[in-house]
Amino acid sequence: FPLNHKKARTDPCSINVENKVVSHLLGAEPEKVFAMPDPALPDDDIKALTTLCDLADRELVLNIGWAKHLPGFSSLSLPDQMRLLQSAWMEILLLRVVFRSLDAEDKLVFAEDYVMDAGQAKLAGLLELHTAILQLVRKYRSMGLEREEFVTLKAIALANSDSMHIEDMEAVQRLQDCVHEALQDYERTHHGEDPRRAGKLIMTLPLLRQTAAKAVQHFCSIKQDGRVPMHKLFLELLEAN
């Protein structure tokens, strides 16, 4: 009995009734973060990149707290939790930027107080990345991505981060199954008219991963350049890639 009891309590999908996982993920969504660019710095590329790296560092702290709310994540071993986050952290950051930018016209809403158009991105040396992220924004905008789908996709990106050296692949698979099932349940209930919608959403994930890899590569070269101050967590995760 105790074994069964424990299994029922820790089986993530035991709560996947009436989209409870989706509701839970909505509730776990981190609060807004403001960029607060330093008014004392001259308006140049260094200021833009410093602002973005500082914002990313603070968002990362929140995203780590968020990950712990994913049903089943905290039952993974600490090394496995670390490996998933080390692989998916940039995808999670980017998906949040993309979702915030859905209502903006060809601009990236890094934060409510930090919106970047192509001209500003070019000045910061981020034009290529800006264009790549906007491709994702347009894709999700044309699909009418909903908040429920966004939070679930973000959980799928973490669970599906394809990290090497996972200790307990079965536990990670359970996490993947749970969030995948949550998305399918949600689409069945809310988008019955389009039976392929869950698949269409999942098919956006390769572009997210590709864009995140570009972003990591770009910020790694900025790090090597050494002109932009970066906080320790951001550096630690850049080094993990």
């Binding site: 309590r9 993530p12 709560i15 839970h24 776990a28 702290v61 780590i64 707290g65 990950a67 712990k68 709310h69 049903p71 994540f73 905290s74 600490l78 090394p79 939790q81 670390m82 986050l85 080390q86 320790k232 967590l233 630690e236 995760l237 080094e239 993990a240």
Partner: peptide, 20 residues
């Protein structure tokens, strides 16, 4: 592990998960 000490510490210390 030493290399990733902040991530390690945050995972151990950040907000406890809701008991599901």
């Amino acid at each position: 592990k030493e290399k990733h000490k902040i991530l390690h510490r945050l995972l151990q210390n950040s907000t406890s998960p809701v008991d599901l």
